[in-house]
Design a protein around this nucleic acid. Structure first.
Length: 563
RNA sequence: GUGCCUGUAGCUCAGCUGGAUAGAGCAACGGCCUUCUAAGCCGUGGGUCCGGGGUUCGAAUCCCUGCAGGCACGCCA
């Protein structure tokens, strides 16, 4: 069992179905298919713990007033042997279920039993899922878009792991194609400028203008001098790329490691050029999706359901980015056998979504197996205004700069506070603020506070007694019950986060748990209460600590024992 | 021009597979430390859910339309 909630949901559904069958056999309700029973937590506490709109949904097929249907169901409901305390009908025809506290106590025992496993569910059944994220061009440093995509992608992967999927984290290294050409040309131009003067050669308009290109070249010259001046341009570029690319990759790798992102696979685009792109084109040819036009090979847009044809192999014989990307996804699905693939892309790539999905169908893969999570761009705010450049270096702010300034915890938490689809304003001042304004501290403080109580009790030699000896029924204060209810929701939160691919609900959730704990802390004492109550509350904060820790571990931020 | 995303409290945003009186945090205002961390808690005020139609017993949520902001429409990636 993953959650008591799950068990209750089943109980209620069974109870309702039985009641309907009773009512039908008594002739009170006409025979009809029972729709899927939807249970949800009512907004108002006064409406019970769980509620269903079933009677309203049945109104039309059954041709009876919703309230009347609800009453008939209510009349035959038998709650014996369940957690249900009371049932009533309210509003336009809601059936509200009120639970007895037993389920809450059972939830605490479950948390204690499962420990770090509490929250894990199994909707994935070990299905193989790849999450591919960041995949920044290795031509320069990581920027804010990569920072957001990184935090998001890593948390999506973690959520899916908790939800029972077999997850692989992957970074696609774009070390081939046109941009490597541009990288080489840019390096070469800077190299010549360094050695022969700024004006010796104009810098290519579509080259990489970043300062980092100049840094590579300066370092190269420091090490190897001007040995490339009398080489052919091809050799020169090759040598410079071979020097700079590993440096960039190392920097990206180290930056992401520092950011607590660890990939299972670094997949190199260049490996696709050995044979897979060709194989992919052949596959598309066989399936009749390739047309020849203007000396190039195109994906047949009409057949694929796209607005226009897309070039796959250029006139000059080189494959386009899209051809490589199709081959890459063929590799993911067909060669490596992933059931589902999730890609995180900046919103500026949204135009590519429909194309890739169509391409999947063209190679015989259902487009539903490919999920694209688009995330909106980030604006950094500092001192109330948009910050684009690092004051220190005068360059665009990199992931490393951000981590230097706000720390890893704040960055990972803040990037997961908003849904991926919404624009994100990152307030750098708030992120370093040590106050209740800062949600990261708010949550971490709750954890530290619990640890502090545990320490204080330990100083007095008070320890938890075995859980079966704790009398949890002593937990009856509203703050205690509210807190346990929050803790009970965690597996459900994981399920929702996994289904929607939105880990942002977990940062909100853990803030709620922290809030519930702080309220409890101000209303109830642990230390100094009589033995039985002390043990019950000790058990409660022990469970609260487990849940907060579990969520923070999932987001991969610290859960400090002291602050 | 065509397509996609966004528009909810002063600010930042949840809610969006239709449900009960639209929520949270921050900001504002007023309270709470002789007791386990006040980096905390409790309370008050605050809304044309961008506008206009439609579907429905019921719409912030679905459909149509208009407006505003962002993005994409390359033999770039």
């Amino acid at each position: 069992m993953y959650s008591v909630y799950e068990q209750i949901t089943e109980q209620i559904k069974t109870v309702i179905k039985n009641a309907i069958n009773q009512a039908v056999s008594n002739g009170e309700l006409p025979e009809a298919d029972i729709p899927d029973i939807m249970l949800e937590k009512p907004r108002e506490e006064a409406f019970g713990d769980l509620s269903t709109n079933l009677a309203m949904q049945m109104a039309k097929p059954v041709k009876m007033a919703p309230r009347h249907i609800a009453q008939s169901i209510l009349k035959h409901i038998n709650t014996e042997g369940t957690f249900i305390n009371k049932v009533d009908v309210a509003g336009p025809g809601f059936i509200n279920f009120y639970l007895n506290n037993e389920w809450l106590y059972k939830t605490l025992r479950l948390i204690d039993e499962r420990q770090e496993g509490y929250g894990e569910i199994n909707i994935g059944n070990g299905e193989k899922v790849m999450v591919e994220f960041v995949s920044a061009n290795p031509t320069g440093p990581l920027h804010m878009g990569n920072a957001r995509g990184g935090a998001l992608g890593d948390c999506i992967a973690s959520v899916l792991e908790k939800a029972g999927f077999d997850v692989t984290r992957e970074y696609y290294v774009n070390d081939a194609g046109n941009q490597m050409e541009k990288f080489g040309i840019s390096l070469e131009a800077r190299y010549l400028q360094q050695l022969k003067g700024e004006d010796s050669i104009p810098f290519p308009e579509d080259g990489y203008h970043g300062e980092d290109i100049i840094d590579h070249v300066k370092d190269y010259i420091k090490e190897y001098g001007s040995n490339l001046l009398d080489k052919s341009p091809e050799e020169r570029r090759k040598a410079l790329i071979e020097y700079a690319l590993p440096r960039n990759l190392k920097r990206i790798h180290d930056g992401l490691t520092r950011y607590r992102i660890n990939y299972d696979v670094w997949f190199r685009e260049s490996t696709l050029y050995e044979s897979e792109i060709e194989e992919t084109i052949n596959l598309l040819k066989e399936r009749g999706y390739i047309i020849e036009k203007d000396g190039a090979l195109w994906l047949n847009g009409e057949k694929a359901g796209l607005e226009k044809d897309e070039v796959l192999i250029r006139q000059n014989g080189f494959p386009t980015y899209m051809a490589a990307d199709i081959a890459y996804h063929r590799n993911k699905f067909i060669k490596r056998g992933f059931d589902r693939v999730i890609n995180l892309w900046g919103a500026d790539h949204h135009g590519h979504v429909a194309r890739m999905k169509a391409a999947m169908e063209a190679i015989g893969i259902s487009k539903d197996r490919l999920h694209i999570v688009l995330f909106q761009l980030v604006h950094l705010y500092k001192n109330g205004e948009i910050a684009r450049m690092s004051k220190r270096t005068g360059r665009t702010i990199s992931l490393d700069d951000l981590l230097d300034e706000v720390g890893i915890d704040a960055a990972r938490f803040f990037f997961n506070m908003k849904t991926s689809g919404s624009h994100l304003d990152f307030d750098m001042d708030l992120a370093v603020e040590q106050s209740n304004n800062n949600p990261v501290f708010y949550v971490q403080y709750a954890h530290a506070r619990i640890c502090s109580i545990l320490r204080k009790l330990a100083e007095e030699n008070i320890k938890r007694i075995p859980s079966e000896k704790v009398n949890l029924t002593l937990l009856t204060q509203p703050e205690e019950l509210a807190l346990i209810k929050k803790l009970a929701e965690y597996p459900e939160e994981i399920r929702m986060a996994a289904q929607t691919l939105e880990p942002s609900r977990l940062t909100h959730y853990v803030m709620d748990v922290a809030s519930g704990f702080h309220s409890f802390y101000n209303a109830c004492r642990v230390k100094g209460e009589d033995e039985d109550l002390l043990q019950a509350r000790l058990f409660l904060i022990h469970c609260t600590k487990i849940v907060i820790k579990n969520v923070l571990d999932l987001i991969r931020i610290d859960a400090p024992e002291k602050m």
